[in-house]
Design a protein around this nucleic acid. Structure first.
Lengths: 267, 267
DNA sequence: AAACCAAGTTTCATATAATGAGACGCGGTT
DNA sequence: AACCGCGTCTCATTATATGAAACTTGGTTT
């Protein structure tokens, strides 16, 4: 996660937030305490404060804490302002329609892949339950592609703090294998997920690069070995390239033109 | 917002987060300073800390701050654990299919309505851009319905800190009018939005109440005056009632049964 | 070029708030 | 009745946050 100390009280309190979120379920005070670096009263006060602040929610019946509702509000703003999603939206819609497969838009967040948007092939999907999800960088198409074009220093850092887990027989499980793969990706400009994260799931991924060559994010088209193969996915490379370039251009020119998108949702 | 002081340094820092989010666009340091209660160096350090912590993101080119990507990660956890959305999902899907109109699921967050999930009538929709959105409580169907069944003390508080704005000619613009409406809703068990927030937009809303009578959230079916009228919407009351009751029951029994929902997304 | 200005950054003595060992209250066992 | 685990509170100590003022930087005006 983020550097816990160094950022004083605020940093410590936020680390508690992460801790609660990491549980993935409502959690009791004692459970937190057991794996907390903070002494009991300190942790207690953090939890109190965060609950006051609606960053945590408290269930009095079960005596449990969970990430709070204020985060949902804040994340809405974050998603609209700090991710590629709003600019990329029309392009992803078009791409999804064109290829008829699941499309992902991801960004790099520390050593992890953060999925910021998604279009499902057939039916509408509850996006929010997907966006915000994180995954490992070393065994996903989007992750590898983003790393391949990242600053070497960042790659070193990611590899260093990465514990390679073999999700499938195809997962790359060593720093050396990964570095080799990254070189290949850099050479050819795009990458694949060859059932490295889940059996039967393959994808082709394309980086979204700024004019200056900085990694903004990545796109991928996902399918299953039942429906197609890598050669089949490779056919999508041109349209992925176009889409990625267009997103990059729009991102460059994007300057939040004063809310000209008037709401008409009828909420 | 939340009580800024009282929660020490952490509370103050979080208030800065809110402030940034409220801008709705990337914002410069000076802009923040102009409307901040904190002196320059204090605000500066908060912004620094929050940026370090990825709660804010900084654009060095434009020298602007925006809500950070860490919020998206955290919100994912919050949405899954602290909202009705995961339990309600199947019920809302069914409801949406049955009525063929836009369906909203909302919860009360302070004095505001927080939309936690949504199904669009015809075409798939980018949910995330809607969930997390907040609206006023006094002039939306879901807001009034939730207030109507809330603790009187809460209602007083909400009304007190509410500045009534007339969005349309039909908006209730006085505490008295609102209280009267709330009494009616309580008597009849559900409520309407009679073009009170946006012209042409109407909805019927139903509270989701726990066995003990506590307000868990609210559902609504939204339409336009072009397609139907209040009497037409009233026909949905029985199915809304059923759906709300079923959601309440599921929410009661919901106890996070240890990740039996294995992922098969193929990300 | 020199003077100016505004936005951003750093310093440092002071005030304030965070800290955590310990103690307390309380419901549920044994 | 004694015990125990869990959550809560107290308070002297210490560390941290604070903010007036000074400094830097990059751009604009005279």
């Amino acid at each position: 996660m983020v550097a816990a100390t160094r950022d004083g009280t605020v940093g410590k309190a936020l680390s508690v937030l992460d801790q609660v979120a990491a549980f993935g379920r409502p959690v009791r005070f004692t459970e937190l305490l057991a794996q907390s670096p903070f002494p009991k009263p300190t942790l207690y006060r953090f939890v109190q404060t965060l609950t006051n602040q609606q960053m945590l929610s408290y269930d009095p019946d079960r005596q449990t804490y969970a990430p709070g509702i204020r985060l949902v509000r804040l994340a809405h703003a974050a998603w609209e302002q700090s991710t590629l999603a709003p600019v990329a939206r029309p392009h992803i819609d078009a791409l999804s329609k064109a290829v008829g497969e699941t499309v992902h838009l991801a960004q790099l967040d520390h050593a992890q892949v953060l999925y910021v948007d998604k279009r499902n092939a057939g039916k509408p999907v509850q996006m929010y339950s997907q966006a915000g999800k994180v995954g490992p960088a070393y065994c996903t198409g989007v992750g590898k592609v983003m790393l391949a074009f990242s600053d070497p220093a960042i790659v070193d850092l990611v590899i260093e703090q990465q514990s390679f887990h073999a999700f499938t027989p195809h997962t790359l499980t060593s720093a050396a294998a990964l570095r080799e793969e990254l070189a290949d990706i850099r050479a050819q400009g795009y990458g694949f997920d060859r059932e490295e994260h889940e059996p039967g799931i393959i994808c082709v991924a394309m980086p979204i690069l700024s004019e200056a060559g900085r990694v903004l994010g990545a796109l991928s088209v996902t399918s299953t070995t039942g429906r197609t193969n890598l050669a089949g996915l490779e056919a999508y490379v041109p349209i992925l390239q176009d889409t990625a370039r267009n997103i990059a251009i729009d991102a460059q020119n994007w300057s939040f033109p004063d809310h000209d998108t008037k709401e008409t949702t009828g909420i």
